[in-house]
């Protein structure tokens, strides 16, 4: 039990997928303009990441490991992720048309989010079981969403300030993300091994 809690805290905060592992920066920067968009994107990515982590574990244990098809790992994982993202797109479009419009191209781009593939591959590398894969995927996604929302809140406030022209938009957002990353280094003292 404690192991699972530690895993969640570890993946969400200590080894945060965006600020510590530096994965998935493109969708982070692309959808952290407004808090509503960030929330929507976070929820979509959580769904995708958790589901694909579990499916990837299933593929690994049922297909790739027994038949020694390790070389097919990247291919099959991407296939699974793409299918899950397609499904998520359909759900979002059905549930909330404005959110679908707001996310735009970033929704299908979750397929190419290196964090999703990265988490799936890390699960294999760490040799996680079913529950562990599930929690690892969910925890990472939760951390991703958290950073997305925090960054969106900060960017909304910075948009109201007098940012010098060369820094306006993406540059100042990266500076803020960098400062957040520094802050999250504070968690490094917590051992989760």
């Amino acid at each position: 039990m404690q192991e699972y809690v530690l895993m969640l805290v570890g993946t969400a905060l200590v080894n945060n997928v965006v600020l510590v592992k530096f994965l998935g920066l493109c969708p982070t920067m692309g959808t952290s303009g407004k808090v509503e968009t960030a929330l929507g994107m976070g929820m979509a990515t959580t769904f995708v990441m958790t589901l694909s982590s579990v499916l990837a574990w299933a593929i690994e244990s049922a297909l790739l490991a027994p038949f020694e098809l390790g070389f097919l790992r990247t291919l099959t994982f991407i296939l699974v992720i793409a299918a899950v993202v397609q499904f998520t797109e359909m759900v979002v479009r059905r549930v909330s048309q404005p959110l679908y419009q707001a996310l735009g191209i970033f929704l299908p781009l979750i397929t190419t989010n290196c964090a999703v593939l990265g988490v799936a591959l890390l699960n294999v590398q760490e040799g996680h079981g079913f529950i562990q894969s599930l929690l690892y995927g969910f925890g990472s996604a939760f951390g991703f969403s958290l950073i997305l929302i925090v960054l969106a809140g900060l960017r909304e406030r910075v948009a109201l300030a007098d940012v010098p022209a060369p820094f306006a938009g993406a540059p100042i957002s990266f500076v803020i993300a960098g400062l957040l990353s520094l802050a999250f280094m504070g968690f490094a003292g917590i051992s989760t091994r």
């Binding site: 297909l63 038949f67 098809l69 097919l72 291919l75 099959t76 296939l79 299918a83 499904f87």
Partner: peptide, 18 residues
């Protein structure tokens, strides 16, 4: 054969579900 076969099966399954 297992490689090609498993990929094909996977593709068809996912496609059908979608």
């Amino acid at each position: 054969l297992t490689a090609v076969g498993s990929l094909t099966v996977l593709g068809i399954t996912l496609g059908t579900l979608l």
